Amino acid sequence: GATAVSEWTEYKTADGKTLYYNNRTLESTWEKPQELK
Rank of each mutant, 00 (worst) to 15 (best):
30 W>R: 05
14 A>F: 07
21 Y>P: 01
16 G>K: 01
33 P>M: 01
21 Y>T: 09
19 L>E: 06
33 P>Q: 02
35 E>F: 06
19 L>D: 03
13 T>G: 07
26 L>Q: 15
5 V>R: 03
21 Y>A: 02
35 E>S: 10
15 D>V: 02
10 E>M: 10
23 N>W: 11
22 N>H: 01
37 K>Q: 14
7 E>W: 07
6 S>L: 08
25 T>Y: 03
21 Y>M: 07
30 W>Q: 06
17 K>F: 05
19 L>Q: 05
8 W>L: 01
15 D>S: 10
1 G>L: 14
31 E>Q: 08
34 Q>K: 09
28 S>Q: 11
2 A>E: 12
8 W>R: 00
2 A>W: 12
2 A>I: 13
21 Y>G: 01
37 K>S: 14
17 K>N: 07
24 R>F: 15
32 K>P: 07
25 T>D: 03
8 W>K: 01
24 R>L: 15
16 G>T: 00
24 R>T: 15
36 L>S: 06
15 D>L: 04
20 Y>D: 02
1 G>Y: 12
32 K>T: 09
36 L>V: 06
30 W>A: 10
25 T>I: 01
5 V>I: 14
3 T>H: 11
15 D>R: 01
35 E>R: 02
2 A>K: 07
19 L>G: 08
9 T>Q: 10
33 P>R: 00
30 W>T: 10
7 E>S: 04
13 T>K: 03
8 W>H: 00
14 A>T: 10
22 N>T: 00
28 S>M: 14
17 K>S: 07
29 T>E: 03
21 Y>S: 03
14 A>N: 08
3 T>W: 11
26 L>E: 14
17 K>D: 06
26 L>R: 08
32 K>L: 09
18 T>N: 04
34 Q>T: 12
2 A>Q: 11
5 V>D: 11
34 Q>F: 11
26 L>P: 03
9 T>S: 10
11 Y>F: 12
1 G>F: 14
31 E>W: 05
8 W>M: 00
13 T>H: 05
17 K>W: 05
3 T>K: 04
27 E>N: 04
9 T>D: 04
26 L>T: 10
7 E>A: 07
20 Y>L: 01
1 G>E: 14
26 L>W: 09
25 T>R: 00
29 T>K: 05
23 N>K: 09
14 A>D: 10
33 P>D: 02
36 L>N: 06
2 A>D: 11
26 L>N: 15
3 T>E: 11
31 E>D: 10
1 G>R: 02
3 T>Y: 07
7 E>D: 11
4 A>R: 03
37 K>A: 11
34 Q>A: 14
24 R>V: 15
28 S>G: 05
14 A>I: 11
37 K>T: 13
15 D>T: 08
29 T>N: 03
33 P>H: 02
32 K>C: 08
7 E>N: 05
31 E>H: 08
37 K>F: 12
33 P>V: 01
5 V>F: 12
25 T>N: 03
2 A>F: 12
16 G>E: 02
36 L>R: 03
2 A>T: 13
7 E>V: 08
12 K>S: 07
16 G>V: 00
22 N>D: 03
22 N>M: 00
9 T>F: 08
5 V>C: 10
10 E>F: 07
23 N>I: 09
6 S>A: 12
12 K>H: 12
5 V>E: 11
19 L>H: 08
24 R>A: 15
12 K>P: 06
3 T>S: 13
4 A>N: 13
23 N>L: 06
14 A>G: 07
35 E>A: 13
13 T>F: 13
17 K>H: 07
5 V>K: 07
35 E>W: 04
32 K>V: 09
30 W>S: 10
30 W>C: 04
20 Y>P: 01
32 K>I: 10
37 K>V: 14
30 W>H: 11
20 Y>F: 05
36 L>K: 05
23 N>M: 07
6 S>F: 07
24 R>Q: 15
8 W>T: 01
32 K>W: 03
1 G>H: 13
37 K>R: 12
4 A>E: 14
11 Y>H: 09
21 Y>I: 15
34 Q>L: 12
28 S>A: 10
28 S>D: 03
25 T>K: 00
13 T>L: 11
9 T>Y: 09
6 S>H: 10
35 E>M: 06
37 K>D: 13
5 V>L: 11
6 S>K: 09
20 Y>V: 00
21 Y>Q: 06
6 S>V: 08
35 E>Y: 07
29 T>L: 05
32 K>Y: 05
35 E>H: 06
36 L>F: 12
3 T>Q: 11
36 L>H: 08
4 A>Q: 14
35 E>I: 08
1 G>T: 14
17 K>M: 07
32 K>G: 02
23 N>D: 09
29 T>M: 05
8 W>P: 00
4 A>H: 14
15 D>Q: 04
15 D>W: 04
13 T>M: 14
29 T>R: 08
22 N>L: 01
11 Y>L: 14
16 G>M: 01
30 W>N: 08
19 L>R: 08
26 L>G: 15
33 P>L: 02
13 T>S: 09
29 T>F: 08
10 E>K: 04
2 A>L: 12
36 L>Q: 04
27 E>C: 00
1 G>P: 13
